[in-house]
Design a protein around this nucleic acid. Structure first.
Lengths: 225, 225
DNA sequence: TTCACGCCCCTAACGGTGTTAGGGATCGCT
DNA sequence: AGCGATCCCTAACACCGTTAGGGGCGTGAA
């Protein structure tokens, strides 16, 4: 897998981000090391420090590489359906890349790829009638929600799932664990064990999105809702 | 700082979580190692593996230790103000503990301390008139939002803030960076640079909470809003 | 009393990590 | 021809998570 072709392209910072992305896909975030990224681009570890101050900065490049190829939804329908599409696409994009949310989370400095999307989203929000201040808040709110949600979705829900066990098994185990609580002390958790462990993440995500969209509508004058 | 008192209390898993919490406060998540936690409880690193399968399991204990002492808001006012209080308290609790969000994020297996809060919140939601399924979804939604928000809030907003620079400086720098973008390509980002870098996280957080609460109200029959 | 066993801790080591110091090689420009 | 910038290297440092194997100590059974 290492790039030992010696007709390799010049080693730019952008190429570093791409290499990191491939290592991430192959080994996960925990397995992403300077040395592995270096081998990926056909170089020794210490050489990376010529292009990058430290690992943190490499992760910034990776952050942008992850967002590359993310596409804004088509400009059709009302603001509501466009924003909804935005959220679902963003989720899918992160979900499709191993450990993407862990990388992106807490890295609020957006790379060029994310900036492009934010620019577009702001445009649609203002066009829909949101004030400048509100529009800014809304992109932040939606971004936070999607990122936070996928972060949970992408991490194993228990140690047992981290090793072998399927998602279905892990979910059942979680539900049983809730049901095993003392019912006099935890009447609601035990009664709602099934609902709380609802395994369809798609509907769980959509629920949040729809609530937020409902809340946003209230910001607009009645005729623009 | 290490606990070299030899009349130390017995080394339980709970005590391990507490020790990890102290190390976290002192050194941050990046500086939290098995060896340091071990010294904190007056023991050598390898001994921890008698009480804990691996570091991941230690972090689970830490996760619960972090949530210890979190208090539910008083049961006064309508469901809306109670839920709002819940969110703001949760945020404050995490914010007050160094790197708490990073630890909690992506660790959805709740410890006893969080379970206690969830039980209570579910109780209030059902009492307010939410269906079982909705109540379950709501606690998840609110938890996700708060966690995701604080995760961003607690992480340095740029490499320059990680070293020395004050928050105020970092925010100004971020705004300038947005304004420096080509205005023809990024008309909205440049125009809204000020709004996008609004430094008062309290109001930013509150904005999201209020939108979500508005959205939740729509789930209830009109007379219960 | 002695033996065995479970509990809890130890030392020593393994392979891996991020990062730095310092030194070469190659290239274009003066 | 010489110089400086650019890019990569080897070697090493301190630290990391984790495991193997062993040593005491306490208790309960023989």
């Amino acid at each position: 897998m290492p790039n030992d072709d010696d007709t390799q392209p010049p080693l730019t910072r952008e190429a570093l981000g791409l290499a990191a992305l491939q290592v991430l896909e192959r080994e996960g975030l925990a397995g992403l090391s300077m040395r592995k990224v270096a081998t990926e681009v056909g170089v020794k570890a210490a050489s990376l420090y010529w292009h990058v101050r430290n690992k943190e900065e490499l992760l910034d490049l990776l952050n942008d590489a992850i967002m590359a190829g993310a596409e804004a939804p088509p400009r059709v329908g009302d603001w509501r359906s466009q924003l909804r599409e935005y959220c679902h696409r963003h989720r899918r994009h992160l979900l499709d890349r191993r450990d993407a949310a862990k990388v992106v989370a807490g890295r609020l400095a957006p790379g060029p790829n994310l900036l492009r999307l934010q620019e577009d989203q702001l445009d649609r929000l203002r066009e829909a009638g949101f004030s400048d201040a509100d529009a800014a808040m809304v992109t932040y709110l939606l971004g936070t929600y999607v990122q936070g949600f996928v972060l949970q979705e992408q991490s194993p829900l228990s140690a047992s799932e981290a090793m072998g066990a399927s998602r279905r098994e892990a979910v059942d185990a979680a539900a049983d664990q809730l049901r095993a609580l003392p019912p006099e002390e935890f009447p609601n958790l035990t009664a709602l064990a099934g609902d709380l462990t609802e395994p369809d993440m798609e509907t769980r995500f959509a629920f949040g999105v729809e609530r937020i969209l409902d809340g946003l509508a209230a910001l607009l004058p009645a005729e623009k809702r």
